[in-house]
Design a protein around this nucleic acid. Sequence first.
DNA 1: TTTATTGCAAAACCTTTGCATGTAT
DNA 2: ATACATGCAAAGGTTTTGCAATAAA
Lengths: 151, 151
Amino acid sequence: MLYYITMEHKYPFENEIRNLGLKVTGPRLKILSIFEESKSRHLSAEDVYQALKTNSSDVGMATIYRALANFEKAGILVKSTFEDGKAVFEINEGKHHDHLICIECGEVVCFVDEEIERRQKKIASKRGFTLKNHSLVLYGSCQQCESKLGT
Amino acid sequence: MLYYITMEHKYPFENEIRNLGLKVTGPRLKILSIFEESKSRHLSAEDVYQALKTNSSDVGMATIYRALANFEKAGILVKSTFEDGKAVFEINEGKHHDHLICIECGEVVCFVDEEIERRQKKIASKRGFTLKNHSLVLYGSCQQCESKLGT
DNA sequence: TTTATTGCAAAACCTTTGCATGTAT
DNA sequence: ATACATGCAAAGGTTTTGCAATAAA
């Protein structure tokens, strides 16, 4: 791989990867670039796989799963598991948020509610728990889908 | 199956099953009785399978999954999917609640917070969504596990 | 050169389904 | 008698792993 010699800043995550003590490889750069270029913020392993295939830059599924797991551990990506059992990943922008999902069309909207965050901490500590993490997902139907349903 | 003739009220869910238009069968009664007798409120399909095996009342996994799905659809059980991808079921006591889980020992605590419930509705409607459902799980470590970790 | 990474195929998981057998009604 | 339920084994879908080939450092 010569990218890092000939075009130092083509790949924005190059330094991040290197800082993780991981080698800067084609598959890793490609996977991250999919997240940057994709219209949908939330991608499953399969989504990444298909996007790369479309790009005619095939990467094996095993590599994708391994890369996603690495990037998550390193904090470059954040993983969420929805009720269908599938995991989706998104770029970690540092701001924590939760998700609102349309059960009809799959649209995903992010939100943050400070009051909910506060109350979660309170609930945990009242029960003697040290809160490490949480998962809040709202399921409903978006305006469009709701009106279609009514028809 | 003679239970319903000879011992009408041995199985408390007999009527519920019948009211669903389902046949009152041994496996169905046994599965529900596991939920009643079990110390842990939340059981996975595997948990039920093992409990029945211990009881020397073996029931096939397929039957368990089918029964759990039926009971959920009918509102006798409530299903939750945690981040490990496993689904757990619990008896539906009518009161909605969320879960607080110890990531060390697996302890599950139920809670309800009306303010969080209200804000969820608000968040959804502000974005044009009709809220159907939600999943809130807090992950942390309980007092005991936290102090063990410190050691 | 040395060590990490990839890709493939196989396995691991949890869950669902087809089908012949068995059971409730 | 009839329709429904069961059990087994096979298949589904997602994710993980072993291992030989390959690429980064």
